[in-house]
């Protein structure tokens, strides 16, 4: 057990899988010589060589589609898109190629690729470098979407994603790269699609994923001082997502708040809320409330962005509302 930063945990998972599996390759913009804009891939080129760890030109569409072609031809590519906002120019490879290959070719092949990309604000990166676009991918049959909330989960989930035979979008919140946490390399593997109860409680369920889980935990700590025990469910994976765990939690607390950093409208929270209103209808003792960003682009200025991002106070307000 060691304390490592989030970025290092990802680096360790990449290093370990590159070592163990010769079919794993890593490529993306500035991932090799520069070690990645956030230092996540630092050292991989030196250890594993330029055949398998490569810098690409700034060609997101081709980076992603080449990963698909490589995955269909025997490799397990792990590619990086420097900011999640840039996937907009790489959608064909993900949506029309990677997601559909297995299905439209009658199950002849899988596409075992991973696309790593950072989302999230909080670093004043502005409207085109801060978005949380995971709902786009969760909407596409054939893609999996994983969002870790701490270094240990990042390490475990990335290893699981690389081993997974299907295309996985692995999302890292860029504000978390320096977050420290305990990492036990010998801990059992995490299964994609299984949620984790990050904190147990009886009064309200807060479902979240990624960095927002930590916001939920902070809110829960404040609520506990007022004798309100919130249960925090860390989804870990949003496609597939763990309906069963959420339903079980809702069946205990009968109140549901869903938190994510992404824009609320038409988001992941909408899907969870709709599903729980369906299969968990008779468990609900209050309306389901979503907490997320307002329906606007991520603003740049510090004062604007801090107001834009959902925080613990927003979660507390939502909890108060469902407890009313």
């Amino acid at each position: 057990m060691a304390e490592v930063r989030f970025a290092k945990a990802i680096n360790m998972a990449l290093d370990e899988t590159l070592t163990k599996d010769p079919s794993v390759v890593v490529f993306g913009e500035d991932v090799a010589h520069a070690g990645g804009p956030f230092g996540v891939t630092r050292g991989l080129l030196d250890t594993h060589g330029e055949l398998r760890v490569r810098d690409t030109p700034i060609s997101e569409a081709t980076i992603v589609s080449a990963a698909v072609g490589a995955a269909m031809s025997g490799l397990k590519p792990v590619v990086e898109i420097m900011f999640m906002d840039f996937v907009a120019i790489a959608m064909d490879g993900l949506v029309n190629q990677a997601a559909k290959a297995r299905f439209m070719f009658g199950g002849q092949c899988s596409v075992p690729m991973v696309l790593r990309t950072p989302h999230g604000g909080g670093v004043n990166a502005g409207p085109q470098h801060s978005q949380c676009l995971e709902a786009w991918f969760a909407h596409i049959p054939g893609l999996k979407v994983v969002v870790p909330s701490n270094p240990s989960d990042a390490y475990q989930l990335l290893k699981a994603a690389i081993l997974d035979p299907d295309p996985v979008i692995f999302i890292e919140n860029k504000a978390m790269y320096s977050m420290k946490g305990d990492l036990d390399e010998a801990a059992p593997a995490i299964e994609i699609g299984k949620a984790h109860i990050a904190r147990a409680g009886d009064d309200v369920t807060i479902v979240s994923y990624g960095a927002a889980v930590n916001t939920a935990l902070a809110a829960a700590a404040t609520l506990a001082e007022r004798d309100i025990e919130a249960e925090v469910v860390d989804l870990r994976s949003i496609q597939p997502w763990d309906e069963e765990t959420v339903l079980q939690s809702l069946s205990r607390t009968h109140r549901l708040v869903i938190l994510h950093e992404a824009v609320t409208n038409f988001g992941v929270g909408a899907e969870i809320a709709a599903r729980m209103a369906d299969i968990g209808f008779d468990e609900l003792d209050a309306p389901i409330i979503r907490v997320g960003a307002p329906f606007m682009p991520v603003p740049f200025a510090k004062s604007l962005e801090s107001r834009y991002l959902p925080d613990a106070d927003d979660v507390i307000a939502a909890v108060e509302k469902v407890l009313a």
């Binding site: 064909d92 490879g93 029309n96």
Partner: peptide, 23 residues
């Protein structure tokens, strides 16, 4: 590796496949 419904989409797939052959 497949016909393709998207014009040009096969091009980067072939590049990726060539990468696999090279690696």
């Amino acid at each position: 590796l497949g016909a393709n419904g998207i014009v040009g989409a096969g091009i980067p797939l072939a590049v990726g496949s060539a990468l696999a052959h090279q690696v």
